[in-house]
């Protein structure tokens, strides 16, 4: 249980649960595999037969039309059969347990489970359960678990950065916003540090930063202007509605004033800095429309690259 459960004993990718502990070579291999897939979308027939006859189950215990759709498109472009399951269960409504659900679905000859769950660690639990019950031919892809990880998002962000900036080892990258509650931020931090980015900054008020976040290898800034100075990449995080008024933040207006990405704040970054956002955006809360729609924004390419990266991950896991 304490060894990295996503790699097999030969160090190959068995599941994609988190970017933490993934060797740089595997990350690079995923990004390299993704590159030719970007062209599939340009073709008249947007399909390759790599996963023909395979079944991909989208197991969404937490709603997310957007992420589910991108996985669905990716799987379909690989010619897989896709089954979407929205299983809305909170921990309070007791019914079938998570593992009961998994047992039932693996009896339906699933090859890949794409799992989204509100609890950190749920995909790990599923992967461990499959291994313990002799079904480790089924692969698990984490599509976001609690505050823990969103590895395909982290990878598509790396693909985007590589596309625009080429060399990771010369970059300064700032992640701005609600790091505390963000699985995206955690995956980005692990990916950036693994790929050799010399300076990863996080910018947020103290209420939105985890205790000891610096242990993850980042430099902490509470002042956004100071934190943006000279950066090559600005990665914005989404601020959830329920966190805007309360004990974490007084109001979206004050947040926007101090931590919203506006053109004047962006001017402090390098002139060729790119602006990223995992979507969906809250315009006027974490990002100004002038920036979101501006020349430095690469938010829509992120979405396109996301399909290719998810195709790469699925083909590497399920194409055997």
């Amino acid at each position: 249980m304490n060894s990295n459960p996503q790699l097999n004993k030969h160090g190959e990718l068995q599941h994609l649960l988190t970017i933490e502990g993934l060797p740089r070579e595997i990350i690079a291999a995923i990004l390299d595999t993704a590159a030719p897939f970007t062209e599939v979308a340009e073709r008249e027939v947007k399909k390759v037969p790599l996963l023909r006859g395979k079944s991909v189950f989208n197991l969404f215990f937490e709603n997310s039309t957007r992420t589910r759709t991108t996985f669905e498109i990716a799987a379909k472009r690989l010619s897989a059969d896709v089954i979407n399951l929205n299983i809305n269960t909170s921990s309070t409504t007791k019914g079938e347990t998570l593992l009961d659900t998994v047992d039932n679905l693996s009896a339906l000859q699933a090859d890949i489970f794409v799992v989204r769950h509100a609890s950190s660690g749920a995909p790990h639990l599923i992967a461990q359960h499959l291994a313990a019950t002799g079904r480790d031919h089924i692969r698990v892809i984490n599509a976001g678990d609690g505050r823990h990880a969103h590895p395909t998002q982290g990878l598509l962000d790396m693909y985007t950065i590589r596309h625009y900036k080429k060399d990771f080892t010369r970059l300064t990258v700032a992640i701005v916003g609600d790091v505390l509650h963000s699985r995206v931020a955690r995956s980005q931090i692990h990916a950036l540090t693994t790929l050799g980015v010399p300076e990863v900054r996080v910018i947020a008020p103290k209420t939105l930063l985890p205790t000891q976040v610096e242990q993850m290898g980042v430099r902490v800034f509470n002042d956004m202007r100071e934190g943006l100075r000279g950066v090559d990449v600005v990665m914005m995080l989404r601020l959830q509605n329920e966190r805007m008024n309360g004990a974490l933040l007084p109001s979206p207006q004050e947040y926007f004033k101090y931590y919203g990405l506006t053109p004047d704040k962006l001017d402090l970054a390098k002139p060729d800095a790119i602006v990223m956002h995992p979507g969906p955006m809250n315009r006027g809360v974490e990002i100004d429309s002038a920036v979101a729609d501006g020349r430095q924004a690469v938010i829509l390419p992120q979405v396109t690259f996301g399909i290719a990266v998810r195709m790469a991950v699925m083909s590497m896991l399920g194409g055997a």
Binding site: E20, S120, G121, D145, G146, R147, H148, A149, R183, R186, P210, T211, Q212, V213, Q215, M216
Partner: peptide, 15 residues
């Protein structure tokens, strides 16, 4: 525990 591990794993911490 609200420390390094909780920060990394995205678990809610008890300080």
């Amino acid at each position: 525990h609200d420390g390094e591990v909780a920060a990394r794993l995205g678990l809610t911490g008890i300080p």
